Amino acid sequence: MTTESTAPDERVPEGPPLGEEKSAPPRLGSARALAWRRRRQSAARFWREYRRHRAGLAGLGLLLLFAAVALTAPWTVGSDVQSVTDAPGRPMEEPSAEFPFGTDQFGRSLFGLVLWGSRVSLLVGLLAAALSVAIGALVGITAGHFKGWYATVIMRVTDWFLVMPALVFAVALATVMERSLLTVIVAIGVTAWPTTARLVRAQTLAVESRPYIERAKALGGGHRHIMSRHVLPNVMPLVLAQTTLGISSAILTEATLAFLGLGDPSLTSWGGLLQDARQAGAVSSGHWWYLVPPGLAIALVALAFTLCGRAVESVLNPRLGVAR
């Protein structure tokens, strides 16, 4: 007598037909490609938000115009515009079709001098602001991370720089150092960093209190790893906004130092033009065309950087509620 098996039927899954292979799963991009894709998406999202600020777009347009003027100055006006011996016009000539901004006391075209001076003023503003923000970010991150006696000492030094008039300190440095473009950049950079240091330290303390910082320390993350991989990316938006706001202040400080005769006399800048106008007696003699173009250029570029900085700050921190 035969017995039938009550075990359920076991079915063998059918494989692919002969001659065909199973398709491999789609390959994911590398970590670097994924990181770049995320950066592009973040940049696109930032630009979408930035375009909603009409004041920021106006400031950006002005900056692009000044940048184009500064970059093309060697071809549009040439370096000969600074020459005193080959001046094409008469001294203190009023604005005309040949000289739109008039001439200076040597007969040089003020239009060409203003265009050429934009190179020095913008360069000093950018480099001095970058130096001050770099110092402030370094001081702020280290003071917020290490705390203890180091933070106490470094923040008291910061407070000392903060209460000292930055312009007076910059004038003192520019006086005792050699008169050059590097001196102006250093004098501005080492006096304008305390505000950035204060802001970055506050942001660093907020980041250090988050739980993932504790997990990173528990997993063996050292000081350098915590500051460079976790703290710095979180304070970079603040640093970027502070940089755009600091450039306008740096340009104004450079113009002030040049007006006081502490700039490089061999270079043409907007502040240097104002100082030349003062020495030539343009104020007392009523030669307004010697004063208005460089002064207006300084005001416009400072306004443009301020508008861009406010827009960037509003995009990176929507809680500020800056009017669009």
Rank of each mutant, 00 (worst) to 15 (best):
I251R: 03
Y212I: 12
A202L: 14
R278Y: 08
E93M: 12
V133R: 04
G78I: 08
G61N: 02
N234C: 12
G221Q: 05
F99V: 11
S30K: 05
E10N: 05
A282D: 07
A170F: 00
A24G: 09
E4R: 07
L60C: 10
R11H: 09
R179L: 02
A35T: 10
H225C: 07
G59D: 09
Q203S: 15
S314C: 05
A323G: 09
Q242S: 15
R319P: 06
L274K: 00
P74W: 05
M177I: 00
G29K: 10
E49R: 15
V184M: 01
L28R: 15
A255M: 09
G261L: 05
F99N: 10
H53P: 04
D159P: 05
K22T: 13
L138D: 03
A206L: 15
A143I: 00
R215S: 15
P26T: 07
V301R: 01
A31C: 00
A134E: 08
G61P: 06
A44T: 11
E214H: 14
I141W: 03
L316W: 05
W75L: 15
T152V: 08
T142P: 02
V124M: 05
V292N: 03
I213F: 13
E94L: 12
R51D: 06
A73T: 10
S109D: 07
V190I: 15
F66V: 13
L273S: 03
F161N: 04
V69F: 11
A255C: 07
T152F: 08
G309H: 02
F111C: 04
M164Q: 08
A170L: 01
M227C: 14
V231N: 03
A280C: 07
R215H: 13
R52T: 12
N317D: 15
R11S: 13
V292F: 09
M92C: 01
C308F: 09
L182D: 06
A44M: 11
G281N: 05
R54Q: 09
P95Y: 06
R119V: 10
F169H: 00
V12I: 14
W47T: 12
S5F: 00
P100D: 08
A280L: 05
R45E: 15
S284C: 00
H287R: 14
V207D: 04
H223E: 14
R48T: 11
G112V: 03
L260V: 03
R201Q: 15
L238P: 03
